[in-house]
Amino acid sequence: MSEFISANLPYLLAGISVGGQYALIAIGYTMVYGILRLINFAHGDVFMVAGLVMVTAAASLPIGVAIVLVIVATIILGVVIERVAYKPLRSAPRMSVMISAIGVSYLLQNCALYFTGGLPQIYPTIPFLSNSVTIGGATTKMVTVVTPILTLILIFALVTLIQKTKIGMAMRAVSKDFETSELMGIKINKVISMTFVIGCFLAAVGSMLYFTNYPSVIPTSGAMPGLKAFVAAVFGGIGSVPGAVIGAFIIGICENIIKGLGLTVFSDAFTFVLLIVILLVKPTGIFGEKATDKV
């Protein structure tokens, strides 16, 4: 057992780290789905845009300012997308909103392609995060250690926000019943915007951690992590924050162990196998509430 762990330690560490990054993205999916019943296909691309903003900002600004700028820009982008592309379709069938989300994803990718000219953008090194560190004989970047800790802190803060504050209570109410909460005087639009603010803030933080492990950002960098984070959200039970986090860690770790076994082609496919299995065995996910279909 200890032999297995020491042989696979680098993969395990990478898995935990990637899992934490997926978790940060997955929360954006799960919260939006919980409230709007919408798979926000554009979320992965918002994550990618956060990476590109970082590249641009770090080129001319000190890194601290750049980090703040990335977070602010990502939040603004998320809220604008919601206002422009999802809000007008609030009473439309769910399929239309999903198509709109796919359209936004397509738009963001094409804009990114235009602004980058199709060239991979070298991601700046964020001091401290990029430093090397040795754990149990495996050398890795500091980000591997920082990610799970930071993820857990942020999630603890988020759960507190949802459980203890007024806006959190409003969020829970809206995700339980959209129309009734509106009748009870909750300002729906404010709650939805807040959801996007939180989701995009976490995606921006996630993008800084994620791209530190990769040399560059390309317009399609966001698609795969986005889908995986979504699968994590479904796995954990969509609408549930702790579920999404656990799902993300499971996916991140399994994916890296599969890479360690030399089956890299299947590392992406595994995620979807997991998705299909969970949908068949327990469609509501591990922590999902049991939904009753009303006729």
């Binding site: 798979i39 699968v231 949908l279």
Partner: peptide, 9 residues
């Protein structure tokens, strides 16, 4: 949407 994401998968 579950069908969408499963077929995509």
């Amino acid at each position: 949407d579950y069908l969408a994401i499963a077929t995509l998968g």
